[in-house]
Nucleic acid binder design. Structure first.
Length: 493
RNA sequence: GGUCGGGUGGCCGAGUGGCUAGGCAGAGGUCUGCAAAACCUCGUACAGCGGUUCAAAUCCGCUUCCGACCUCCA
């Protein structure tokens, strides 16, 4: 078995063997949400992807410091207004009240999707000092200049000296230079159009502002990630992640800031998740092509015919690779829902299986091979759809054993235990799925056993009208009766 | 316009020079009192046009369509 992990590195545009900076330890930084609005479903995909990655790295035995920030300042709109301030103005709230409200909502949604909390979740407003220090470092190294109280990053100088600007996003600095010839005159304070603010002087009516050596103002958006990743993970760390729409300018500028301040490329592996589409198009509020997590759960949207549970959504996302675009459609969700239920039904069946066989069997080796392959798929840049397909190969075997199409003695008890263990590890620990049907407690099981028993008696008496009435009435209640070789079981449809 | 990534069967979605992806839907069958469930079998596929090759969905070129970024965005 190939136990090396390969990760697609956006910087090199190829899969690379993963080697951490410090053996056994991983530092991972993921760009978190801007908390000025309810969390976007596409955002959820990104964080679920990195949750799966975090979980898999943990499974591999690494000790991980997973840092995911909360952006609560510095994110400018077209008109120059800060997102937080705008949210505050609209809702008539303190900026921090807005941040708290949507942070709470974000945390709730992350919990609903069963993502693990990061090790550290720093806020931009809690790290103003670190950001000011970084601006100073950048100025000291000659890559920042001050204009009217604002500080800009000198991309041209940085590009010429290091040759690094544009590497991640594929931008060519010569083109940026060429562009500048036309635009230079219109540039207010900047030397070059691609220069970006690392500190901005605040206007009087600006709500969120701090003292600095240059002005009363606020940090540029790209700066927080540079400052906080450096603070918690060091100048160099292993993995930096985010949505691929952040590649430029955000991540490109982050690299420039880190290099400008400390002289080194911050992350060894840059990982980018792809977009979530809705009906083949990008989600967009303005043209109505959008759906919120809540609407998806309740079915209260023109885009879906019914609600889909958080775990079905998570399963749906696992069915595509994190680097591929994923098209959310009602039909695809229905398919995912059935697949999810089939998988968890098999897990239930697996739990009830025991075998009298003690010696290894051919079926044992076949299953072992499938399991090994599933982990190899995960080692190949976290290929969850492929690993999932292996699991479904086992689902068929499990069901055959359960229903007697294949004698249970064909597999050994130890072989069964290995499948159980692999399922636990992959489905629950790595994929982060939960059994949503597993909420029954109290009298329901007892009642169902009683009903099934009565139906069994009716069937023995060939009283088909009674037995069918029980079956059909339960069916109307969304309870499905399953007559198997080993007796009758039931489940929610 | 520039940069990057895509177009795979009815739907979603892996694969990336010769070898079954998988899920859902469909057809036939086994089982069943009848069904359902489960299992078995089956089908149609690689956007189009050229080229390279013994061999291409996979590599190259062109065309076309879609998405992301270039301006706030996961």
């Amino acid at each position: 078995m190939n136990t090396d992990l390969y990760i697609y590195n956006s910087l090199s545009r190829q899969k690379e063997k993963f080697t951490p900076l410090h053996e056994g330890f991983i530092g991972m930084y993921v760009c978190g949400p801007t908390v000025y609005n309810d969390v976007h479903l596409g955002n959820c995909r990104t964080f679920m992807s990195f949750d799966m990655i975090y979980r898999y790295l943990r499974y591999l035995g690494y000790k991980i410091r997973y840092v995911r920030n909360i952006t609560d300042v510095g994110h400018l709109l077209d008109d120059g207004e800060d997102r937080m301030s705008k949210g505050a103005r609209i809702d008539n709230l303190e900026p921090m009240e807005v941040a708290q409200k949507y942070t709470n909502g974000f945390h709730h949604m992350m919990k609903v999707f069963n993502t693990l909390p990061p090790s550290i979740e720093p806020r931009a407003t809690g790290h103003i000092l670190e950001q000011i220090e970084m601006v100073q470092d950048i100025i000291d190294h000659g890559y920042g200049y001050v204009r009217n109280g604002s500080v800009y990053f000198d991309t041209l100088k940085f590009a010429q000296k290091t040759g690094e600007y544009g590497k991640l996003s594929g931008r060519v600095i010569e083109e940026l230079i060429a562009e500048s010839r036309d635009n230079l005159k219109n540039q207010d304070e900047k030397n070059h159009p691609s220069d970006f603010a690392i500190w901005m002087k605040a206007s009087d009516e600006h709500l969120m502002k701090w003292n600095s050596p240059w002005s009363v103002g606020f940090p540029g958006w790209h700066l927080e990630c540079s400052a906080m990743s450096t603070k918690y993970l060091g100048r160099e760390f292993d993995i930096h992640g985010g949505g691929n729409d952040l590649k430029f300018p955000h991540h490109e500028n982050e690299i420039a800031q880190n290099m400008g301040a400390c002289g080194c490329q911050p992350a060894r592996y840059w990982m980018h998740t792809n977009m979530l589409l809705l009906n083949g198009k990008k989600m967009s509020k303005s043209d109505g092509n959008t759906i919120s997590p809540e609407e998806l759960f309740t079915g209260n949207s023109v885009h879906v015919t019914k609600g889909y549970s958080p775990m079905v959504v998570r399963f749906f996302m696992l069915q595509s690779h994190y680097r591929s675009p994923n098209d959310l459609t009602d039909e695809a969700l229905q398919a995912a829902e059935k697949g999810y239920k089939r998988l968890f039904e098999a897990i239930k069946n697996l739990g009830s299986l025991t075998s009298p066989t003690t010696a290894p069997t051919p079926l044992d080796s076949r299953c072992d091979e499938v399991i090994v392959t599933a982990f190899e798929d995960m080692n190949d840049d976290f290929n969850t759809p492929k690993a999932l397909s292996r699991l479904f190969e086992l689902v068929t075997i499990i069901n055959s054993l359960k229903e007697g199409q294949v004698p249970v003695s064909d597999i050994s008890q130890e072989g069964l235990e290995r499948i159980k263990s692999a399922f636990r590890t992959i489905i629950f620990d790595i994929f982060g799925l939960l059994d949503e049907a597993d909420t029954d407690s109290g009298p329901v099981d007892g009642l169902m056993n009683l009903i099934i028993d009565l139906r069994h008696q009716a069937r023995n008496n060939k009283d088909w009208s009674t037995s069918d009435k029980i079956r059909d009435s339960l069916n109307e209640l969304n309870i499905q009766i399953k007559d198997g070789k080993e007796g009758t079981s039931w489940g929610y449809k």
